[in-house]
Design a protein around this nucleic acid. Sequence first.
DNA 1: CCGGTTTGCTAAACCGGTTTTGTAAACCGG
DNA 2: CCGGTTTACAAAACCGGTTTAGCAAACCGG
Lengths: 358, 358
Amino acid sequence: MEERTPRRPRIADVAREAGVSKTAVSFAFNSPDRLAPDTASRILDVADNLGYRPHPVARMLTQRRTHTIGVLTPQALSVIFSNPFFGAFSEGVALAAEQEGYALHFISPLHGSLARAMNQATVDGVVVVGLSAGHPEVEQIRAAGVPLVMVDSSALPDQPGVVIDDEGGACAAAEHLVSLGHRDILIVSVEPPWPALELEPEGVMGRRLRGYRRGLVAKGIEMEPSSVVVAPASIEGGLVALHRAWADGCRPTGVLVMSDAMAIGVLRAARELGLRVPEDLSVVGFDDIDVSQHVNPPLTTVHQPIRRKGESAVRVLLSVVERRDRDPEQLRLETRLIVRASTGPAPRRRQEVDRVRR
Amino acid sequence: MEERTPRRPRIADVAREAGVSKTAVSFAFNSPDRLAPDTASRILDVADNLGYRPHPVARMLTQRRTHTIGVLTPQALSVIFSNPFFGAFSEGVALAAEQEGYALHFISPLHGSLARAMNQATVDGVVVVGLSAGHPEVEQIRAAGVPLVMVDSSALPDQPGVVIDDEGGACAAAEHLVSLGHRDILIVSVEPPWPALELEPEGVMGRRLRGYRRGLVAKGIEMEPSSVVVAPASIEGGLVALHRAWADGCRPTGVLVMSDAMAIGVLRAARELGLRVPEDLSVVGFDDIDVSQHVNPPLTTVHQPIRRKGESAVRVLLSVVERRDRDPEQLRLETRLIVRASTGPAPRRRQEVDRVRR
DNA sequence: CCGGTTTGCTAAACCGGTTTTGTAAACCGG
DNA sequence: CCGGTTTACAAAACCGGTTTAGCAAACCGG
C-alpha cells in the first residue's frame, strides 16, 4: 500500500505488466484488429486497472494532429466574452467543431503579444476573427504554415474566408429610416480597439458606414461627419454615445447603430432622456442578437446569421485542414432588415423644429 | 526557387545551418545566457530567416507543461456559449488566465463522451463548471491526476472549489417579495439538463430552492409543489414558463426566477399577457447579468460576482497546478439582492381576488 | 607553471507515444 | 513435405524538442 510517487503510468508500464511490447499496447488502443482478440482485451484490461490513458501530447506529436481548432482574436478574451455577438459566434464555431470531433482553443494576446500566444497554441487550424487580412500577425501565421480562415475581413483572394453583406444590410437600415420620414439621423459606430486602426475602410465598420451612406444618399440625404459618433462596442458604449451626442446639441429623430449591444444602450439612454421610442426616436441596430427581440421595445435591426457564420468558418477551415481542399472557399452570407417596434414614422414636431433651426 | 515540400524547419535544420548543436539552438531560445552573446544572436538570426519556431507540442512533451487550462462543461458548448452567465464567467476565467500566461481550452462532450474529450485535452488543470462532485467523470479526472477546481458544486472537503451563497441570496429575494405584500408567488426553476439529475438537492438550483423556501416559510408562507415550474435556462424558457403557468390557471403576483435570462423571458411574457411590471406582477431574477439593468423595467435580481467567480476559480486552480498549494482552497463568494424597478407592492385587487377564490 | 574552476559548447538520453520494418510460427495449396 | 503467404507480435526508428552529463579550452589565484 506504500505507493511512493504515483507516477502516471506509461505505455511501457502497461507493456511490461501485460508481457507484451509497446507496439502491442499501441495496437490495442488504435487498431485492435491487428492483434488476436484475446491479446487485445487482455492488454486493455491491464491498462485499465493500471489507470493508463495514452498521453495526449505524445500522441499529438507523432500523429501531427491536435484535433483542436483555434479561435484567434486581437482583443483580450476578457473583453470579448462579454460580447453577445461573440457568444453567438462561438456557439456556431463550437457546434461545427463538436460535430467534426474537434476541441476549441481560444487564442488571445499573451502578455500583449498575439505572436507569442500563437506560438504556443497547439492547433490544426485557426479561425481569425476581428483582424484584417493585411495584419502582420496573420501573415506570420500563414508563414508558419497553419491553415486559417478569416472571418469578417475581405481577405486576399487565395485565402479562405467568411463574410456577410454588411454594406447591403446597412443600406437597407438607412433606407428604412428615410422612408419613414426621418431626415436627421445619427450614426453610432464602434470605436476601433486600437487608435491605429482608425481608418480602415475595409473593416466591418467601414463597410457598414458605406452602406449607411449609400442608403441615405440614394434618398438625397447627405451624411455629415458630425453625425457620426463612436464609442466602445458595448451597452455602456451605446448609452454614453447618445448622451454625449445629445449634450453636444445633436437632435436626431433616428439613430443607426452598428451593433445591437450598443443599440440597447441607446434605448436606455433615450429612456433616461425622456424620449419615447419609437414616437420621439427611432433606433435601428445591427446583428440581431438574441436579446434584441426581447428588449422593450423589440429592436428593429439588421439580421446576420451569426451562428451560421461561426459554423461555416469551421467547415471551410476543416476542409483545408483535412486536405479536402479544392480552391480556398470564400463564403458570403446574406443580411436582412428585421423591422420590429423600435422604429416608426418621424415625429412631425421634430421636423418643424429642425426646419426652424436651419 | 523550386522548393519542393516546404517542410517546417526543425531544430536540427537550424543547428546544421548555424554550425552548432541542437542543444545550442535550444539554449538560444530558452536560456540565452548560457551561450556567448554573439553565438546566441547568430543562432536566432539563422532561425529567423529559416522561419523556424519551436514546435509547441514537442515543447509541451518535454516540459510536461502545456500552459493551458481547460474549462469543462457537461453541456455542449453550442448551448453554453449563448448563456450570458457563461459568457461573464468565461470572461473572469479568461482574465485570470491571460494574466498568468495561460491559454484557454474548452472541453465539452466529444461524440457524447466527456471522458473521450478529456482524454485528448492537453491541459495543466481543469475548471469544472456545472458538474456535481460525485459525477463519475470528475472522479476519472482526479484519478488521471489532473488538478481540478469545482465551481458551483459543494465539493468534497479535500477538493478545491468556488461557490457562492445561493441559499442566502434566494432567501433574500423571497423575503423581499413577501415584505412587499406578495402572497401568491410563482417559482421558475431551471430544467435539469438530463432528466436523471432531477433531484439533486446539492445542485445550484437545489440550494436556491431551499433559500426561497426558507425566505417564504420565515414569513409564514408555505411553498407548494404546484407553485414551482421548470423550463430551459434561456429567455425562451422563461417566456414559455410564465405562459404555461398562466394557462394552468396560476395567478401569482410575484415571480422568483432562478436566472436572469429566464427572468427576461418572464418579463416579455408578462407584456404579452397584458400585465404591467411591477404594478400587476413583480419579477425577481438571479445572477445579475449585464443586460439585467438595461431591460425595461430594470430587473430586481440577486447579484453574484460572476466574473470574480471565474477569476477565483483560475487562481485557485493555478495555485495547485504550480505547486504553490497549501491545503486545497475552498472559496465562498457572497450574493446580495439588488432592488430595481421590476418589483413593487403587491396589487390590492389581486389579493382580494385570491381571497375570494379560496 | 600548475591544479582547480569557469566558460561554452556537444553528445546522448529522454519525454511518451506511433509507425515502419522484421521475424518466427502457423497456415496452405500442390 | 516443401516453398510461399498470412498472422501475431517485437525491435528499432521516429516525432521535435529539452535536459543531463561531459569535455576541451580559457581563466585564475598562488
